[in-house]
Each structure stands twice: as C-alpha cells, then as structure tokens.
Amino acid sequence: MGGYTFSELGSIFVMQGFSGLSLFCVYLLMALGLAIIFGQMGVINMAHGEFLTMGAYTTYFMSKLAVDHFPALVGIYFPFAIILGFLIAFGMGYLLEVLLIRHLYKRPLDTLLATWGVSLVLQQVFRSAFGAREVSATLPAWLLGSVKPTETIDIPLNGLFMMGLTLVLSLLVFIFLFRSRWGLKVRATTQNRVMSGGVGINTKKVDRMTFAVGCGIAGVAGAVFTTIASTGPTTGSLYIVDTFLVVVFGGAASLVGTVASAFSIAQAQSVLEFFLTSSIAKVLTLLTVITVIMARPEGLFTIRVRK
C-alpha cells in the first residue's frame, strides 16, 4: 500500500466503503423479499430477479413517458414509478403464486426449476418488449451531482438517495411484519404452519399475500435500482445467486440476519475488490460464505430449537 498518504488511504476506505454500501443496498433490496418468501414457505423463487427487472423497466417506462410527453413531471415522476413498480410486481407475483407456486409447495426443488423457467420466459419477454440493450431512466435533476465533504472524497447523490430509500423500505417491511396484524399472521405461519392453520389463520391466503408482497418489494427494489445503474433483460438474474447466499448466510426467516449478512458480504466484496482483482474478490467472498454456511447450516442468526 506504499504510495498512498494516510489521508488518501482514508478516502479510499470511505469511497470503497460507500461502493460497498451501494452493493449492500442492492443485495438487501433483493434479499428482503426473498427472505420473507423463503422463510415462510421454503420456496426458492429463481425468478425473483426478474421482478426487480420489472420494477426497473416500469421506472424506465415512466421516465420515458415523462420526458416525451410531460416534461414538467420529470422531477416528480419517481415516487409514482415506485408505487407502480410495486403494484405491477405485486400483481405478477400474485398471479405466479396462483398459477404455479401453490401447486409446488411440497416440492421445493421442483419449484426451483419451474421458477427458473419463469425467469427465462420473463427475460425473453423483456427482450422482446424493450430490446436487448440496456436502458437507463432519465433521472430527475435533483438526483444528479455529488457531495464532496473533503477534497478527495466524492459521494454521488443518487447513491445517497438509494440508501435512503433502502432504509425506508426496510423499515416499512419491519413495521409491516412486526406491527401489523397481517405481519403477525405471517410470522405465526413461518414458525408453525400447522398450528397457525389450527387457530384459524388461512395459511394459504397468507402464503399468497406473502409471495405477492415479496415480489412487490422486488419491484420497488427495481425502481430504486434504476437510480444507480442501467437496466437490461438479465439485470435481475445477475444478482440472484448472490442474493440467495445472502439469505441463507443470514439464516432464513431472520430479517436482522438478512440485513447483517447483506452488509457483511457486500462490504467484504467491495473492500477485497480494492486490494485484489474483482474476480478474485468475488471468488473469495463466495468461498467464505459457503464455508460459513457449511459450519452453520442453519444460518448465522437463527436460534437453536428443539425438534
């Protein structure tokens, strides 16, 4: 590390930490929905990434609409894009659950294959509808530019905005799960499906809603995602395996675990990336995660229970 002054090194860590935070946000946004679904139903939805893409394309579409037809709205279309992104992903998720997932609850491995098929279909639909090339939403002016707290540190505004949104979304999910009546049902079903059915919770309905909400969250994630990167048909699938490792690493059904694991994996990867090549950094991170999963197959943040 010769050649860097102490303050330069400090700046590097801040910047690298910041890029780690961006990655953390992407992981977390994807993992939130997955963790809820996987935790409650044990369903691996390989098409989860495509719901993110869905939200991203919705945002792109809204921005295009605003730029082409309602230039006055360019500054404020974003909140609407988030809502629409959620609704579309929610609706599609609901549909997917009804048509496919609910028939496969007892066959987790088959669900994995079937949803892989869904993801292929959706990718092709995106490609036909929006083209194979990546597109970017036109960002409102207030999202451009950066903050410069010191001479050598440069933090982009859109990145900060994304972090803010991630925080808000995570809080909403927490409130939803731990404060709402419906969240109570979800948690009850997660912990003991049979018992929940016994006390009058319609677990099938809960499953359907959970799945749809999980997908909806991915839709919002997609909208947020457009602020830092462009969108292509396969954008979502790039992160899917990483995200699953995040969920498993944190321990399914533990949201705090998901946050912690998304944070540690993203930071590890981004810091390693600075010292090594990015491919080796990625390999080392994945290997570490796999090793930890092996040592603690139930995840880092789960409690020991009696069988």
């Binding site: 279909v121 959706l122 092709q124």
Partner: peptide
C-alpha cells in the same frame, strides 16, 4: 431464436407441473 427461450422456459414449467 426469440421463441427458443420462451419454449425452454415453458419446458421447465410444464415438465415440473404436468410431467414430473
């Protein structure tokens, strides 16, 4: 070529759903 990915996806779904 565009049809193939759709077919492939459909194959995954239908094999699992209807022809395990």
């Amino acid at each position: 070529p565009a049809l193939w990915l759709l077919l492939m996806g459909g194959l995954f779904i239908s094999v699992v759903m209807f022809f395990p």
